[in-house]
Design a protein around this nucleic acid. Structure first.
Length: 196
DNA sequence: ATCCGGATCGCCT
DNA sequence: GGCGATCCGGATG
C-alpha cells in the first residue's frame, strides 16, 4: 500500500467481490476546472454478469451497458431517475461484464467545493453518503463514462486500508431483483456510509 | 425515527 | 408505457 499511487487496471481484472472489498480505503479523486475533490471509498456493491438480475448487464450488450463489456479499470457512469449519476469501476470477473458501484465516500479534498455543489446537504455527513450524492459532490458526470481510471480527470489511488474486522457485508440496497445476495461492503460505523 | 410521494428522463423485466 | 443500482421534503407516530 503506497498512499497516492494510482491503482493499475490489472487490479480490476479480478473477481468482483475481491475488488469491491479491496476498494474500501482507496481514494476516489475527480479533478475539474475548479480543482480536485476526493474521498475515501467506504461503501461498495458488486454487480456480476448477465445472470445477476440487478446488474445492468442483465439487459445484454446495449449502448448503455457497453462499458461493462469493454475492459477492466474504466469508469461506468450511468444516469438514473432522470437526474442523478452513479459511478462504477468496471471489473472483469471470470470474463463476465461486471462492476463495482461506489455508494459512499468520506470527503478528503475540496470539502468547501463539495458544499457548494451540494446546497441541500445541511450537514457534512450528507455530502457524499449516497451514490448520487457523491457524484454531485465530486463533479462526476456522464462525460467521464468509459474513461480509464489510471489517467485523466477521474482516478482511484491507494490511500488507507481497513482490517477485515472493521468491515461488514450486507445485501445490496435500493434494488428489487436479487436483493438478498450479500454483495455490499461497508466500513462499519463510518458516518459516511449511506442509509439506503 | 420511519414512511411516502414527487421530480425527471433514458431505457427496455 | 412504465420503471429505475436516487434524493429530498413533508407527514405521521
Amino acid at each position: 500500500m503506497k498512499p497516492g499511487h494510482i491503482i493499475p487496471a490489472s487490479f480490476y481484472a479480478r473477481d468482483t467481490e475481491l475488488v469491491a472489498r479491496d476498494m474500501l480505503g482507496m481514494l476516489l479523486q475527480c479533478t475539474t476546472a475548479e480543482g480536485a475533490t476526493s474521498g475515501i471509498i467506504v461503501e461498495t456493491e458488486a454487480y456480476i454478469g448477465e445472470h445477476d438480475a440487478a446488474c445492468h448487464a442483465a439487459a445484454g450488450l446495449t449502448t448503455r451497458t457497453a462499458p461493462l463489456y469493454d475492459r477492466a479499470g474504466i469508469a461506468y457512469v450511468y444516469f438514473i431517475y432522470g437526474m442523478y449519476w452513479c459511478f462504477n469501476a468496471v471489473t472483469r470477473a471470470k470474463g463476465l461484464p461486471s462492476a463495482v458501484l461506489v455508494r459512499a465516500v468520506e470527503p478528503v479534498e475540496g470539502i468547501a467545493r463539495m458544499r457548494r455543489r451540494r446546497p441541500r446537504a445541511h450537514r457534512d455527513r450528507d455530502l457524499t453518503n449516497g451514490p448520487g450524492k457523491l457524484c454531485l459532490a465530486l463533479g462526476i458526470t456522464g462525460s467521464l463514462n468509459k474513461q480509464p481510471l489510471q489517467r485523466g480527470s477521474l482516478v482511484i489511488r491507494d490511500y488507507t486500508s481497513y482490517p477485515d474486522a472493521s468491515i461488514a457485508i450486507t445485501p445490496r440496497i435500493g434494488i428489487r431483483h436479487a436483493a438478498d445476495w450479500p454483495l455490499r461492503w461497508i466500513v462499519a460505523g463510518n458516518e459516511y456510509v449511506s442509509k439506503g
